[in-house]
């Protein structure tokens, strides 16, 4: 039963070994001549401004939240897509499936219109 997953397992092992090897080898093989400038954190080539542990604006959270909601909507589309054409005869019919998904999408579209009207997608 696990036979088809052996390549996946090998890939995971290869990637992990590769990542560990890169860090370990560069740690031991690289020359280390630190200067204060080299030790400074890289911030797009300019001197770092303040601490990295700043509070982030809640706007990021709003975008992430909206992304997840519509992401989950997409997750439901995957199984729906697999049975939409494949099911001749057995199971729910094509028209039924279409109406069902349309109802689902329309309810979420209400949310989309709400987000749009509330200007929640704008960065102000």
């Amino acid at each position: 039963m696990l036979q088809p997953y052996i390549p996946v397992l090998l890939l995971i092992l290869f990637v992990a070994a590769n990542a560990v090897m890169m860090i370990v080898v560069s740690h031991y093989a690289a020359p280390r001549r630190p200067t204060p400038l080299k030790d400074a954190p890289y911030e797009s080539g300019m001197p770092p401004l303040g601490s990295a542990r700043e509070r982030f604006s809640v706007k990021f959270y709003l975008v992430a939240m909206l992304f997840i909601v519509f992401d989950i909507e997409t997750v439901f589309l995957f199984p729906w897509g697999t049975i939409f054409f494949g099911d001749a005869g057995a199971g729910p019919g094509m028209g039924f499936l279409l109406v069902e998904m349309l109802v689902f999408m329309v309810i979420l579209a209400v949310g989309y219109v709400y987000v749009w009207k509330r200007r929640a997608l704008e960065w102000d």
């Binding site: 939240m65 909206l66 909601v69 309810i107 709400y114």
Partner: peptide
């Protein structure tokens, strides 16, 4: 879908 709608409005 109604649950997701509530999540959108709540956020």
């Amino acid at each position: 879908s109604i649950l997701l709608l509530a999540a959108i409005v709540g956020a």
